[in-house]
Amino acid sequence: MRFLLDDEQRAFARSLDGMLTAADTPAAARAWAAGEHAPGLAVWRRLGEAGVFALAAPGEYEGVGPLPVETAVAFVEVGRHAVPGPAVETVTAVALLSGLAELGVPGPAKRLLPALVDGGTCATLTLTGTGTGTGTGTEPHALDADAAGVLLAAGDGEVRLAPGHTDLRGSLDPARRLGRLLPDGEVLASGDAADAAARCALDWAALATAAQCLGIGYALLDRTVAYVKERTQFGVPVGSFQAVKHRLADVLVRLEFARPLVFGAAVSLRDGDRSAADVDLAAAKVTAGEAAYDAARVALQLHGAVGYTAEYDLSLWLLKARELRGAWGGAGMWRGRVLRRAGGG
């Protein structure tokens, strides 16, 4: 038992952190929100070069995976840097196509995976209807479909390549633009294989979203800690006041107890420990989502009015935390899954 990241995994995190810091992701996120994708896609290609989108794909499709632990490591950094674009959706699409290949439907993987794996294009996907074991309507929205080269619709015993999308509408997070996929299009798989691949995709969506939330939470905490050390009132840093300290301490407690759930879920998924993975992924999704949202509320409060402005970069993380709380199924759905899978009933 060694429930710690190894040196290589830590080095991977550091290199992504360094690369994304240098890439000025806040500027790319603002451009993305304005419909200008070029800076974000440049970041995307660098994530591809770093191997992030290869982590969910097996070697025969130019991947290096499946590596859920490394995926979690990468998505903590994606969250920490407020990277715009359908990153979770792309990794989920990679997992979906890889899952189909493993289930005896290799055609779509051969055709679509290479461009997704190397970061040349991104994918978006929806998960609707039944077949995922979580009820209906897990993720009916297609994120950033106008930037995606691959539009996948999964659910109800079918995986489809959608022919297009509706007009995108913003969300509370201007860098996350949501739409619907159009009906019809090419059916890539159907029946049990499609349902099984959709369930597999949902695992990866939950894992990547939870990890992204964790990174968002730590970014909000770090920025707020730095701010309350600098900001003085009554002649002292506001961070010396107990009311401020205790709120930040609670944020750290929540994040530090969400983190092992995220990595525990990754380990269970990697090891194919189905009963543990079912509970751990759900637990991670709920806990990291709530911890990030809690961090956002505290970050806003402790920044005061400056945090409430669109101009200040804090808003990039604040609003994403709210959006991700409900993405890929809300807390109620995942809590229900914890109870169902934890035994009985």
């Binding site: 038992m1 429930f3 710690l4 530090e256 107890f257 969400a258 983190r259 092992p260 759930l261 990595f263 525990g264 509970v279 751990d280 637990a283 709920v286 806990t287 807390a331 109620g332 809590r335 229900g336 914890v338 109870l339 934890a342």
Partner: peptide
């Protein structure tokens, strides 16, 4: 129901935190 789920989730979080 959500509070029961949270009890399970937190106990698992504490277990994994302790293994770490």
């Amino acid at each position: 129901r959500d509070r029961v789920a949270d009890a399970l989730i937190e106990a698992r979080a504490y277990q994994l935190f302790t293994w770490a």
